[in-house]
Write a protein that binds this DNA or RNA. Structure first.
Length: 549
RNA sequence: GGGCGCGUGGCCAAGCUUGGAUAUGGCAACAGCCUCCUAAGCUGUAGAUCAGGGGUUCAAAUCCCCUCGCGCCCGCCA
């Protein structure tokens, strides 16, 4: 996966000669105020008679490592101080030779990340955008650690909501040239019409025709859905998200794949009044075919996953928390019933609420992602004008808007419900994309304005602020591995903010342009290291690079 | 009713997977810092019964049980 000098492993090897049970998780770096690296040995030492002896030996061995300057043993923790020049060199060598830290090599696994997959019944709203932001960052993260990644959007064009969209167009706007606002209007009116008439019969009929593979209807529905979908893709593009593959759910009906699903599941099928279901241990009956022989959502989703498994070794799906049970069922069906060895994982997120309550496209209470983006752009432009007057750059405002939007939705643990507040979304201070971008701009400013005078860099006298920055930069590979392993892109978002803060402290602490040439040259390299890593991390979480702020 | 998720300073979060040394940040508040590589920044002060109770352990924000509060799911919908 990664190729880099692993100081933690080198220390662990020395510890293992005395305490073989110590695992990588027992060592932490730069996480607390004790040593640069700390090894938690208490649980191995507590019942050991020769603990003192073992510690003495470990300290001697670790101290002898070339990159270690000091060791101590406090409260059964081994604290190790690192010579910053070794960290500096490890970072610099990687960046000089490969342009990145850590260096990566390609993994053989092919991974699919499915995200967004919203019914194309309206523009992307901020709730769904949370899905997109998480999914896209996850895909970028998996790519960064070496996987071959494809992003996917599963277009649900065969359910009640899609039929309602089509029905709304036919009933309220027939023969007009369809546009997104018009379709949305028809959709909202349709739901009101259902409420007034107390019947959804017309749409149910359409659903049945659709299920029966009525090609004329399918092409008409697809046409209407396609207009909405183009709008969604355009919305996604404004925040830097491109989806590699769109798969239409109706395909699986048209090609007969849902029939294949029934065949493959035949050994596990039960029948009730002509409908078919499977039993999931500890759960209710899960119906996979209606009495009238048509397929259900889960049937088509199984067909979709059979397709995905034919192309990818691992599939990750980002879905709302209301799909938790569905996810569990899918895993059981794919791995236990259909006996696939491909792996399937789900990332669940809680919905975005408004202070006034829930969002709903059909009730017209959702906030479109694009309107938040526009407001962000507007506010960025105001701020830029304060600084540059007429020289304010609209492209920069767009990048600020896209980055801020993404960061705002990504930085929190997806399991926590978030309440969208305009004042928070439009804040550019503190833990925000802008302050991270600002640190990059400052780094670039230094590199552009302060020149290297050719002296041999001094490898001593690292100020604390520089050392902290280097140590934090150095733990990037661990953060990447941690985030990729646990499907948590927010770890990278939190890290990016920490790293940018460490840089800003260094920046405030040391005036690089005024340093002696041999210090200055080293510190310019430190800035370059920071810029390389922060750009790398920002690329994963979708924060864009700007020249000026 | 059953299942799942969440509960950390006034507000918003990190930490929980793998129990261990002073619970980490941001916003808001207060006090400072721009003739100096961009102050959308930095420094400092104040602010926490880690929802409550019980248990396991030498050690619990972290693991287990119970209670409370909030959210989600429990369809031949998607």
């Amino acid at each position: 996966m990664f190729l880099f000098t692993d100081f933690l492993e080198l220390i662990r090897k020395e510890i293992n000669t005395e305490i073989p049970e110590v695992v990588p998780e027992d060592l932490t770096m730069g996480q607390d105020g004790y040593g640069d690296i700390s090894a938690r040995l208490i649980k191995y030492l507590i019942n050991r008679e020769d603990a003192g002896d073992a510690c003495e030996k470990i300290m001697g061995r670790v101290k002898a490592l070339e990159f270690v300057s000091e060791v101590s043993m406090t409260n059964n923790y081994l604290n190790v101080w690192i010579r910053p020049e070794h960290v500096f060199r490890a970072l610099k060598e990687s960046i000089d030779s490969t342009g990145m830290f850590p260096d990566v090599f390609q993994e053989p696994e092919r991974i699919s990340v499915e995200h967004t997959s919203t019914n194309p019944t309206g523009p992307l709203h901020i709730g769904r955008a949370r899905n997109s932001v998480i999914g896209d960052s996850l895909a970028r993260l998996k790519k960064r650690v070496g996987y071959r990644v494809t992003t996917q959007y599963y277009v649900n064009d065969s359910g009640k909501q899609m039929m309602s969209l089509y029905f709304g167009y036919e009933k309220f706007h027939k023969n007009e040239k369809p546009t997104i606002p018009m379709l949305l209007d028809g959709y909202i009116k349709t739901y009101r019409y259902f409420e007034e008439t107390g019947s959804e019969k017309e749409v149910e009929e359409l659903m049945e025709r659709y299920e029966r593979n009525d090609s004329d209807l399918i092409s008409k529905v697809r046409f209407v859905a396609g207009i909405m979908l183009d709008g969604i893709s355009a919305d996604l593009a404004t925040i830097g998200i491109k989806i590699d593959e769109y798969t239409w759910e109706s395909e699986f009906i048209a090609t007969g794949e849902t029939g294949t699903v029934m065949e493959r599941l035949s050994a596990d099928l039960h029948e009730e009044n002509g409908a078919r279901y499977i039993d999931i241990p500890g759960l209710r009956k899960i119906y996979v075919q209606r009495r009238n022989g048509t397929s259900l959502y889960i049937t088509r989703d199984i067909a979709y996953h059979m397709y995905k498994f034919s192309q990818y070794d691992h599939c990750t799906v980002v879905v709302g928390e209301d799909h938790r049970e569905h996810g569990k069922i899918m895993k059981y069906i794919m791995n236990d019933l259909l006996e696939y060895t491909n792996t399937l994982s789900f990332v669940y997120y809680a919905y975005v609420n408004l202070e006034t309550g829930k969002m709903s496209t059909r009730k017209g209470t959702s906030i479109p992602m694009i309107s938040v983006y526009e407001k962000l752009k507007e506010k960025s432009m105001e701020e830029l004008k304060k600084r540059y007057g007429d020289g304010a750059d609209a492209k920069t405002a767009e990048k600020i808007a896209a980055s801020s939007f993404r960061y705002h939705l990504l930085k929190f643990n997806p399991t926590k419900p978030v309440t969208f507040r305009w004042e928070d979304a439009l804040d550019f201070n503190g833990d925000t994309a802008v302050s991270i971008m600002y640190s990059m701009v400052r780094a670039s400013g230094i590199l552009n304005k302060v020149s290297n005078e050719g002296a041999i860099p001094n490898m001593e006298n690292f100020p604390e602020s520089e050392k902290s920055l280097l140590l934090l930069a150095y733990i990037y590979p661990y953060k990447l591995m941690d985030a990729a392993k646990s499907d948590k892109p927010e770890i990278i978002a939190n890290y990016a903010f920490m790293l940018s803060t460490a840089f800003t402290r260094f920046y405030e602490d040391v005036k690089i342009s005024e340093q002696a040439p041999e210090i200055k040259n080293r510190q310019l390299e430190t800035v370059k290291i920071f810029r390389t890593i922060i750009e790398d991390a920002c690329n994963i979480i979708g924060i864009m690079k700007v020249d000026k702020l």
